[in-house]
Structure formats: C-alpha cells, structure tokens
Design a protein around this nucleic acid. Structure first.
Lengths: 341, 341
DNA sequence: TATTAGCACTCAATCGATATGAGTGCTAAC
DNA sequence: GTTAGCACTCATATCGATTGAGTGCTAATA
C-alpha cells in the first residue's frame, strides 16, 4: 500500500508530531529527511497520505496531524532494537528486585517505576484470587463482636474479611479454622459454597450452634470478595499533558481511573500474551477514544497472568513505552517465578 | 472593632464572593442589603473595611475581595443554627450506619459522603496503632518461603505484615503465635522490642532455632509499620474549582495529597477537639496557603481520636461544611462507641 | 514521468487601537 | 451621617489589519 518513501515520510511526520504536538509542515520534513526531497514533493506525498487516510489537516492552511490509522501503520512498523539501553535495563531490574516480599508491593513498585519513566498513567492489576484454590485460612478474634477471616490462595494472595460474630473464644476459632481448612483446602475459592461449609457440623459436633451462626455470615462475606484489584500510579502526569490539562477533561480522566470496573472490562478484552496496543478509536471504552493504551502481561506463578497498562495521549513515545513495558513485565515474570528469591 | 453595620456589610460581601467568585461592588451590596443604604455609603464603609485589612481590591476599578483576616471575622461570626436540616442529618446518619463492619470502611464512607456533600477534597485519618496495646496475633503460612503476621490492637486495628520465613509448618507457627501472644499481650505495639520477643526462647525451648531466625525478621518488619494512614476522597472535585483547575496547580495539589507525611504534620498540629479552621496564610503548610482547611475530630473507642479534614479554596461554604463535618464526626463517634451495634 | 520552483491563496494567531462598563473616590449638597 | 453626581481607572471585549506558516496548483525542468 505504501511505498518506502511514503512510509518514511509518515514516520518522520509522526515522530515530529509526537515531539512537538503541533501540525507538521512540508518544509520541516523536507529539511529533516535525508531523502533530499523538496518541500513541494513532500506536499504531494502528504496529499496522497491524506487521501489514504493516514493524515489530516486541522484546517486548510495548517500542517498535517496523524490519524489513528496513521499511528497504527507507524506503530506496526516500529523497530524496537535498542529502544532502551542496558543501563536503563539494569536500573529497572535493580529497582524491582528491591527486597519487597509482598507481590502487591512489587507490582506497585513496578507501576510506579513505569509511570516515572514514561511520564504517563499506569494501571496494574493484582493477581487473581477467586479462581485459585484455598491454601490456608484462619479466624482471628478482633473484639467481642468481630472476627477476622484470613484467606490465602495457592498463588499467595491474602484477603482479610471482617465478620460480625460474637460470643466465642480464640481457641474455638482455632478449632473451627482447622476444621474449615481441612474441609476446604484445595477447592477454588469461588467453589466454596454453603454446602461445603455446612459439612463442618459433622466435623465439629460440639460447636454445631456456632457453626449455624457462622455459615450465613461467611457466605455473605465471601460474596463480597473482589475478583481483581487495580493500582493506579502517576495520575498527576496526565495533568501536565496539554491534551488533558483542562479541568473538565482531567476530572473525567480521574473518574475513569477511580472506576475500577472499567479496568476489569479493559483488561478482560485483552487475552493475548505480550504487548497490546489500542490507539484512539480502537479502544472500545468511550472514555479512552482520545488516548492510546498499551498493555502487557506478566506471568504470576504458574497459571496466572497480571496486566499492566500505560495510558496517555495518542501522541506518546510508543517505542520507549513498549520497550520499557516489555522489559518490566519480563522482569516481573522472573521475580514471581522465584528466580530472585 | 467593627460596628454592626460594618460587620453586616462584610458578611454580605463575603457571602456574595463565595457564591460568585468575582470581586463585589458597592452597588450589589446596596441593593442586596436590607439596610436601605446607598452605594455611596457602602463605598465609604468598604473603604474603612479595606483600611482595617478585611478587604482588598485586585485593582483600582474593581470591587472588593475578602482578605484572610476578613474571612476570619466572617467565620468567627457565623451562626450555625439550622445550617443543615433534619432531612440531611437523617440521610447522613442512615448512609453511615450502612452495616459496614470494618472501621476503615466506615471512615471511607464518611469521607466519601462529605466529599459528595461539600464538593471538596476530604482527608480522613484511620485510627492509630502503635500506641495501642496488642490484643491478638497470629502467624499464618502463605507459602514455603513466606509467613503472614497478623497484629490486632485493642482498638481493633488490624495490620498484615509479610515475612520471608522458610522451613516451618503451620502447627509450629500456631505454637509460636500463642507463645508470642502470651508474652506480648497488653504491651503497646511500639513497646514490642527484641528483648521481649527473645524471651520466647525460654517459653519454647524446642523451637529455639526457629525463634533465633524469626527475631531479626520480626524486628525489621515491625519497624516499617506506619503509625497512621490516610484516606483521600473527592480529589476530582478540586479539578472543577476554577482556582485550581489549571494543570500545574492541580498537579501540585495531587502531589500534596499523595504525600501522606504532610497530613501527619497537619493533623498533629491540631490538638483541640471539635472544629478547627485554618484560612489561607493561617496554614503552616506552604502548599495550603491558598486554601482553607476545616478539620474535625471524632472519638474512636475510648482514648483514640480520628480526624477528618475538608480542603478547598478559601472561597468555600463554611457554614454548610462546618455543620456537615460536625454532624458526621458526631455520628462517627456514636458508631464507634458502639451505640449502633 | 517524477521533481521542483514559484505563486496565489487560506486561515489561525497576533497586535494595536478603540470602546465599553463595572466600579471607585471625592466633593458638595441635603 | 448620608447621598447624588461626576471624573477617573482599568480589565475586558471588540474589530480591523497584519503576519506568517503552510497549502494547492501550475508550468517548467531533468
């Protein structure tokens, strides 16, 4: 479709636009390119590229701006060789392997780091929970009226739930905990049903009354476990991006990031491993139609995938972001596979 | 210092400025006031009020804007009768007593609600931890290499800490947990020292080796417990306030709210119970010099106080905010004193 | 046939001059 | 003490002219 000179020109225009944010004129390209081509020739090519839908003019006498299609060609033709150097890689690696033990903290670190490097907003998902099997469980007395339920999945995710539950002692709770664990260990968390919990009564005949009281409370509480949680880092970066710095837009963005269900939808759509790029209108989510979204997956333990997304204006440094994201997600996969423990 | 007419005029000017955000002229006040006074008279009074430092003009031919001192007089002279009606009170009460069990959730709810009502940013502190005594403790195995330490204070705050700790079983951990609790129960959390933990060795001679291994890990982890944590709600509101909606200012604000140590300082300064109002330059924190900060305390259990602050432009609805804040904090005190359980 | 120089044309952005009007301060009269 | 009246100030809005970056088209050139 595009000959190599057209592609070259398109790339130069987009590079320039990403850097400057202003429509790019033919003279700029004529001077920049090593093609030895006059501005008039560039103009002709530009007119062709516009006809093909890769560029457009905000008004007649202005330069060209890339369309979503233009960005798409540009991104697809990017070579990522040496987009980030060994020094940056070493820095990233050393910052991520910083002795944090909890997976959540490692992920927050990673998201924060990417936000710093890219100057954009980063959303990261924590490892899943409900589809994993229960590996440990404990009931702990908080006060006369409250009990804490700790659930641990086999992918090492910890959940705290508080139950309204009076008139018991820690030693009773310990016995119940042990019995519950014996009965439930290995079931996936979403499979823990009233039926399974109720079996406990046979196991702990002495506490039948307590169990009857506990069962409905447990069931209600388990329903409220969130499947996946998200972390947003670097929101303030977007406030410096001219495209979003006006109050109304910034506010809409903030509300977008507050609404975690949207990110469930976004992440659920992305099934392929590796880098996924959505430019402008390619985003199904209305609110992101003016943005580009670059997502990557990292492997968390054997079967689980976590996701990290960078969100910013379409005018972003795709090369650098893709490389950074790839490198960070690989490092995370390494960390979670236990290589650095 | 001020006669009653001057005070009345000052109040009218500030009311108008709070509503409109634009400098207030003499004609506006002359028409509005029921004083039956001409604009010329108002101008004379305004000139006096300016001389006294309660008003100023952004430029010669503009109306007046209240100074920090002006706001101070205004706020001190506010009557709060019926600032919020019974209907609003009932609504607030019913939304707060919504069956949430965890104190953190109740506080988040409250902060969110205040942010909604006031249209401003709300910062709330969670109950303290370190100065309270330990009431329960449990070590729970997460994986071959990780152990979860749960600490519960007598004011019902729960902390999770993850330790890097291999080669043990849950039943050993249970024994250690029980022994630890026996030794430490009742000590305040900040008083838990290596010495106290080390005593364990006499208690659990069989596990001396495990204890030796555990002690330094425990000590390091305990050091990293945050004393107080904060919740920020309604940041997006500030993006709609003209005074802050430009990108740079909004960003600085965001970073202010991200930096939780600043709120430790701010809250620590406020020692009195009840409502505390800081207007503009009255704030010690540089970043809040263009804002007003209204803080209130609620009683959390017997000895503990939590704090909630509303932050916004000096041009804010003091009457409504103070009343809302007072009502919410009283309701929280009631909830935490157990009245609604 | 592809390239380019040249030129007329477009249009956002900038600038300066002018007008508008909200609001003041002062004075003199009530 | 209050107020009508008036001159004055100054931010803001308006309008026309200018500028300049950039285009599209045409005709000449390689």
């Amino acid at each position: 479709m595009l000959n190599s000179r057209q592609l070259k020109i398109l790339q130069l225009i987009i590079d320039d636009f990403i850097a400057s944010g202003a429509p790019v004129g033919s003279r700029t390209i004529s001077k920049k390119s090593a093609l030895g081509i006059s501005s008039a020739t560039v103009r002709n090519e530009m007119a062709d590229l516009e006809e093909l839908g890769y560029l457009y003019q905000p008004h007649t006498s202005a330069g060209r701006i890339p369309s979503d299609q233009g960005y798409r060609i540009y991104v697809d033709s990017l070579s990522l060789d040496k987009a980030i150097g060994q020094r940056e890689k070493n820095l990233i690696r050393s910052l991520l392997i910083s002795g944090k033990i909890r997976a959540e903290e490692v992920i927050e670190n990673a998201a924060h780091l990417i936000a710093e490097i890219t100057g954009l907003v980063v959303v990261a998902s924590y490892p899943g929970f409900k589809k994993h099997s229960l590996s440990n469980l404990k009931l702990i007395k908080i006060s006369e009226t409250k009990v804490l339920l700790i659930l641990i999945s086999d992918n090492e995710v910890v959940k705290n739930l508080t139950l309204s539950f009076s008139g018991t002692t820690q030693s009773i709770l310990d016995e119940i905990s042990n019995a519950l664990l014996r009965n439930l260990e290995g079931s996936t968390i979403e499979d823990i049903t009233v039926k399974k919990i109720s079996k406990l009564k046979y196991d702990l005949k002495n506490y039948a009354e307590v169990i009857d009281y506990l069962v409905p409370i447990l069931r209600d509480t388990m329903k409220n476990i969130d499947e996946v949680e998200y972390r947003v880092e670097g929101f303030d970066n977007i406030l410096s991006v001219p495209e979003f710095s006006d109050g109304t837009k910034a506010r809409r963005m903030y509300q977008l990031f507050e609404n975690k269900t949207i990110f469930k939808d976004i992440f659920d759509q992305i099934t392929a491993e590796g880098i996924d790029i959505r430019i402008g209108e390619e985003n199904e989510v209305e609110e992101l139609r003016e943005c580009s979204l670059i997502t990557t997956t990292y492997r968390y333990q054997a079967r689980d995938f976590g996701k990290i997304a960078v969100i910013g204006p379409k005018r972003m440094d795709y090369r650098g972001i893709i490389s950074t994201l790839e490198y960070v997600s690989n490092t995370l996969s390494d960390i979670f596979s236990g290589i650095y423990l």
